[in-house]
Each structure stands twice: as C-alpha cells, then as structure tokens.
C-alpha cells in the first residue's frame, strides 16, 4: 500500500469503498456480540428473564473467577484440552496411516470396504458404554471415544484424497522409474496436503464433540464434567461459564489450523 500515490482517483475510490465495507462488517460483528451481552445482562437485572436458568454475563464472569480463585480453572481446562488434543492427534495420525495402507493395497481396500461403510454409519457414541467397561472409566475412555468418532471419517477422507491423485502424474513417475515408495512420498502425500488440511479442520471441531461426549459419559474433571455437574446441582452459571470457555478454546484451536493452512498452502 506504500505506492498509493501512484493510483488513479478511480482506483483510490475503489480501495476506499472496499476498506469502508470491511470496517463496517467488522463493526457489525462486534456490535451483535456487544448488544447480545448487554441485552442479556439488562434483561437479567430487570427481571425480564429468570436468571436462575439463564444466568447473566456478570454471573458467568464471576463463576469463571470463582473457578480461578479456588485454583481449579486451569486444571479443568487442562484436562479437557489434553483429552481433545490427544484424541485429535491420535485419530488424525493413525487414520492417515491406515489410509496409506489401504491406498497401498487395492485388495485390502476391497476386502475392508464393507466394514468401513458399516463403521462409518454406526453412531460411534453407542459404543461408549462398552469402551468404558473394556478400558476402564477415566481419561483413557474419553480419548478412545474421541478417537473412535474421528478415525473412520479421517480414513475415508484421506483415502479418497490419495485416490484422487491424477493418474497421469502416477504414470509420469513410473516412466521415470519410480517405485511405490517414491510415488507415495514424492507424489501422493504432497498432493494430498490441501485435503489433509481440510480433514484437520473438520477433526478440530469433531474432537471437541468427542471429548465433551466422553466427559458426559464418564469423567471426574474437565469442562464437560463441569457442565454435567453444574446442570445436576442447578448451578447454571457454571454451565454457561464452561460452555463459553469451550467456545473460546475451540475457536483458538481452529484459528491455529487456519494459520497452518496459510503457511502450508502458500504455493498452491
């Protein structure tokens, strides 16, 4: 933008218009949030809504501060974050690895196809109670549920991603004498990176779903635990506070993946 002096008046007008539009969109975005919070607070303090079940922003903040005061805020956040990140990483890495094996062997792919279809259509949460019995109530079950929810869709998406690779590019590699390893590492994997990023984006959101569902079923700590606990003892301030914390954490994780996308896809 240093060269703005060189631009014609028409172009400057266009740039201004564009910038103004961007500014007004941002203002509206913030305005909605601020108006919503203000209305919520006012409606609560004037008694328009029953604050016992809706809480208010100030009570939510107080609730978060209470957690902080008693020293458990970062403990609960840490537990949920750890479960989510582990679930996300294990499912993504293992899923991609299985997808590579299925890409490698067409026979195995054909044999396992019906099993993958069935597992994909099964609501994985139905296996929750079984998993808890099999591997014990605790963090390991929550991570397992999270992995289970993510892994099938990761395998299917990554495999499709690999199989979409241009046949002519594969032929080109073969004509240069490439073996299957070279085709995998020099062609299939690099060309699947944009698809891999979209899988990451989906998995980031889904891993939170997996963790919270897991915590609903079996947990003694974490934000999902606080939500369940809060609703059982009718401390809805706590439920609201945990939900808002979740919102913030999930957004940060999504932003990190978007950032990664920008860096990785610079040349595509």
């Amino acid at each position: 933008m240093k060269k703005s002096i060189d631009y014609s008046i028409e172009h400057k007008k266009w740039l201004n218009k564009r910038r103004n539009k961007k500014i007004s969109v941002t203002i509206c975005q913030f305005a909605i949030l601020i108006i919503f919070i203000a209305l919520w607070e006012i409606a609560g303090s004037l008694g328009w809504i029953n604050t016992f079940i809706t809480s208010t922003p100030s009570r939510v903040l107080a609730s978060i501060y209470n957690l902080y005061e008693s020293g458990v805020l970062f403990y609960h956040i840490g537990i949920t974050l750890l479960e989510t990140i582990l679930g996300f990483l294990i499912a993504t890495i293992l899923g991609t690895f299985i997808a590579i094996i299925l890409w490698w062997s067409e026979t195995l792919r054909k044999i396992l196809d019906p099993y993958i279809v069935v597992l994909n259509s099964l609501p994985k949460i139905a296996l929750g109670p079984l998993i808890i019995i099999w591997i014990g109530a605790g963090m390991q079950s929550i991570i397992a549920i999270c992995v289970l929810i993510l892994i099938i869709i990761t395998i299917i998406s990554m495999l499709n991603n690999f199989l979409e690779c241009d046949k002519e590019k594969i032929l080109l590699m073969r004509s240069m004498g490439a073996n299957k390893f070279q085709i995998l590492f020099k062609l299939i994997l690099p060309s699947a990176i944009p698809g891999f990023i979209s899988v990451l984006k989906i998995n980031v959101g889904m891993s939170w779903v997996g963790t919270i569902i897991g915590e609903y079923l079996v947990s003694s700590a974490g934000l999902g635990y606080l939500i369940v606990y809060g609703s059982q003892v009718f401390k809805l301030d706590l439920v609201m506070a945990s939900t808002i914390l979740l919102c913030v954490l999930a957004s940060i994780m999504y932003l990190l993946v978007s950032l990664l996308e920008k860096i990785v896809l610079k040349h595509r």
Partner: peptide, 30 residues
Amino acid sequence: PRSIGYMFQRDQLFSWRSILQNVKLGLEIT
C-alpha cells in the same frame, strides 16, 4: 514405462515444487 518420456494434455507439473525441483524430479527418482 521406464525410459519413456511423457507429455500430456495438461503439463502435470507438481504445484508444490519450484520449476528447478520439477525438472530435477527424474534425477531424484533414479
């Protein structure tokens, strides 16, 4: 298909490699 050079309708250059890296591909493979 070894020792045969291909040209296709689309150039099939690898978008994640620079021009030099694309041209080098064959030597890397062998």
